[in-house]
Amino acid sequence: MRKIFSFIVRIIRAVLFIFYYLKELVLSSLYVAYDIITPKDLMKPGIVEVPVDLKTDTAIIAFANLISMTPGSLTMDMSPDKKKIYVHAMYLHDKEEFIRKMKGELERKIAEIFE
């Protein structure tokens, strides 16, 4: 009984995750569009190393895709031991805060669904 319940919870979370993914896609497109249309130059690009605590490959690839869909960040590469992801950021005003957003918000959501 408990197993069935946890399975249903997991499916509901996956559906919510798809909606979250679409919301992030719309937000980040609007962000990029605004930034391209306005002529002023606010960009501070950089490539940051973000540590990953996820175990399975599925979770890691979902995390990488979600990073690519959040505003102003794009996954570039992964270290061979699957512990770090290299992320290209468009507005890198504060590195610590950027890493905290990636870890705290996105990775927690992924870990809830896939692990």
């Binding site: 501070k44 690009p45 490539i47 190393e49 570039m76 270290s79 061979p80 290299y86 890198l92």
Partner: peptide
């Protein structure tokens, strides 16, 4: 080559998959 204005590149020279 990267464009102007890069403030950091932590991937430079790292061993990747």
């Amino acid at each position: 080559p990267k464009g102007p204005g890069y403030i950091m590149d932590e991937m430079e020279g790292k061993d990747t998959y």
